[in-house]
Design a protein around this nucleic acid. Structure first.
Lengths: 107, 107
DNA sequence: GCAATCGTCAACCATTTGGTTGAATGTCTG
DNA sequence: CAGACATTCAACCAAATGGTTGACGATTGC
């Protein structure tokens, strides 16, 4: 029986999916547009989106023939709380995260 | 090519491994002692420890016939930076804020 | 020396992941 | 209605996970 934390962390364990989440920070996106920057099939992206949805990290809403993907940051909060339980990390800086983000999106 | 972040998050996506990390917060432990509270074989725990080691979350040092497991918080720190930054980034993003406002006004 | 202990390895199994291609479904548009 | 578009489904594949049992190589202690 997989907990939410299991599926959340597992979903984050793939660079493609983390990139998708970063893209969705900007705005909601259709599946086709999510897939556009990646060099893999639409079906592969569709599977990634299913995994992200099961993990509660995004939600998908179909309007007409377009399925919109929306970031759902709540699931991340639980994972973040778990991590903070380790409490021994130095101060978190936003610019450090932005370097991560750039690296993820460019790689 | 799996980044460290990939293997770190993937390693965290299992409750047994997260429990092991929590145990190692207290002190370094031998493999047999790590396995003791779990209802699974020693070999299964050994595999979990290999995954945690590959992810950089722990290190293992053999002294005599005992292999000691030690928490290595650096890998966790990187993952934590990613998540914390993600949350902050989302919180301050204008579009996200506007969506939040729309939701509040309509619902 | 010999037996117990520590831990991994090897083989096996079922399930999931991460990808492909091609067909199918649903929806818009001309 | 016909065709284009958006997305998933189905079948397939290779590799990784998560678990088992049993054998094995070190190491320790009597």
């Amino acid at each position: 029986m997989k907990t939410t934390l299991d599926s959340t962390f597992a979903a984050l364990g793939d660079a493609t999916r983390r990139s998708i989440l970063a893209m969705l920070l900007e705005d909601d996106m259709a599946v086709t547009d999510v897939a556009e920057p990646f060099e893999m099939s639409l079906a592969a992206i569709s599977k990634h989106l299913i995994i992200l949805t099961r993990a509660g990290l995004i939600s998908q809403e179909k309007r007409g023939r377009v399925k919109w993907c929306k970031l759902e940051p709540d699931a991340l909060r639980d994972a973040s709380i778990w991590m903070q339980g380790f409490g021994q990390f130095e101060a978190i800086h936003l610019d450090a995260f932005e370097r991560f983000l750039d690296q993820e999106l460019s790689g």
